[in-house]
Design a protein around this nucleic acid. Sequence first.
RNA 1: GCGGGCGUAGCUCAGUUGGAUAGAGCAUCGGUUUUCUAAACCGACGGUCCUGGGUUCGAAUCCCAGCGCCCGUACCA
Length: 619
Amino acid sequence: MSTYKYPVYLFRCFKLDLPQTASCLSAMSVWFNPSHAIEQTLRQVAATTEGFSADFEPGVRPADPKFGDYQANGVLGYAKKNDLNPRELGQKLIDAALASGQFDPELIELALAGPGFINFKLSNTFLWQWQLDYSTKADYQSGAKELKQGRRIVIDYPSANTAKQAHIGHLRPMVIGQAIARLLDFCGADLIRDNHIGDWGTNFGTLIMKIKHEGIDLTTLGDDALVTLDKLYKEGSALESKQPELRDVSRNELVKLQNGDLENTRIWKQIVEISKVAFDKLFVQMGVEVDITLGESFYRDKVQRIYDELTEVGLAEESEGALVVWHDEVKKFSRDNERPYPFNIRKSDGASNYASTDLATVLYRVREFKAEEIIYLTDARQQDHFQLLFLTTKKWFKAKGYPLPEMSHVFWGTILGADKKPFKTKSGESIKLQELLDEARSRAYEVVTAKNPDLPEDERRAIAESVGVGAMKYADLSSNRTQDYVFSWDRLLSFEGNTAPYLLYAIARINSIFRKVGLDPEAPIEGASPAETEAELILARKLMGFVTALELTLNDLRPHFLCTYLYELAGAYSGFYNADKVMVDDEAVKARRLILCARTRTILKTGLELLGLKPLERM
RNA sequence: GCGGGCGUAGCUCAGUUGGAUAGAGCAUCGGUUUUCUAAACCGACGGUCCUGGGUUCGAAUCCCAGCGCCCGUACCA
């Protein structure tokens, strides 16, 4: 059994108190999150403006740069609903906003446009002051931490299985899971990463049968123990097909295990331990962090209570020998359907299944961890299960008066090959995760060696590690997770487009500049003049978008929003890099460009680290 | 049958939940380096947003009806 390790939560120190609602009139600091500030201020202003009621939603969002930095669309909908003239109403709101003194004309410009949009354009003064006010990772985090402040969240990932080698199907839960976990943590959640392993399945009967049949001592298997177990299971299944009488033997071994038979329990523990060691090796390579590991076996003595309580409150009933919960009010689960679809919480042979253990797990997490929110990560095919789990939990907790946590299912599509079918080896087998990692490293190594043959061997290896594994992760994170995506080595390792190499390269170039000028990129830079050129201003604007990108990412738990933002930021930087030379004679210009480089570096690094990538000093 | 997802440039994908002239990358064509990493940058070409209706100031996005593909449909997880 794994040890309990609760994460340690330190009080975080923040350099700044955020002027979230403060006026930007203050010369010392500007709004950290202008979108929020504008939204709040407009709401306040509208509350005391004729023609608006309390339910007015300003609808502020980033705007197309040709119109401004932000736009408020709310007037249009509001005017429509109340049968008012949108342009008149918009102008009224602008007048009131300006009269309130909350919008300093030197910092932000308001304009009515089109059918009733309100556009907000930040002045160059604002843009530059923002760069001066907010410069470090801690500054950026101090804004983000409000998003999940102190909320106790259990994230159920990566749900590794046992007695089987990890394959490509384990890539997405590890990659998406760690990215979301880091994001939640960065944004202030009180997080528990719970690795809910599948260590109590029917497959153990077959495996134990085969192990005993061959008289194998699991302690002698060495480093490749899991590979052997994987093989033994396959052989065991094949054996059962050939000699059906062995099925009864396997079933008997399973029953013995479930009844606490000493010998079988000992073998089972060894299998679980071998699996754990193998997964830990992958976790290290993948950057997966786990706070606790409580597998299905941990809940095996906790399912009886589920049967009892659900029966007691009248939710569960017998059906075809099984214990089930009906949700007739949801059409697809109704018992009136041609194919009835209940939530089966106890099999007709009396055994538990993943519905029973999942229900027991919810209760445990609420009671022991005081979970306010539980996030499950699995592939999209399990949506029905989680819908049933959530429905059942809601009714059960209500009947018992338990505090109901917010529950959500974060799911993803399949990784496809070039043929648009699930990505497999040429012979049609599933690709082992370790082989995938090795191939990523070796391909990246070839690219690095071709581009930069003069670097020392060990540095090229280190670069290949970061680029190869990072590229694979980034490819997984940069497309919308609910969709399937096509896996292509050439594309994910390319330096063109929305890829890890492109982003890592941007950081490496920034580092190179700081090496050349002999400055620490983390150190304060004095004596800068304000940004002025087009490329500088585009970059400065993009830098401000980080917090919005984080917020967007967190709202839907879709890491590709952050990826898209980082790619755009790197693009803005590359444009700036080509247009404006940093190392110029004018010290004030040089200083301001170094500031832009430093900010870009900090945000790119922070963003990539949240996604689980490891930025490099050079490449 | 029921339910879920998808359909956007030749290819791979975005599109902040109903906003302004639908965007990137690749591919194709053209340009930029005595300059901080050209592994880069800039430009051009490329669209029946699957089809047909509807809702309204306004639709790739919402509603209805089709077409096509993927997935799920109790005792695997």
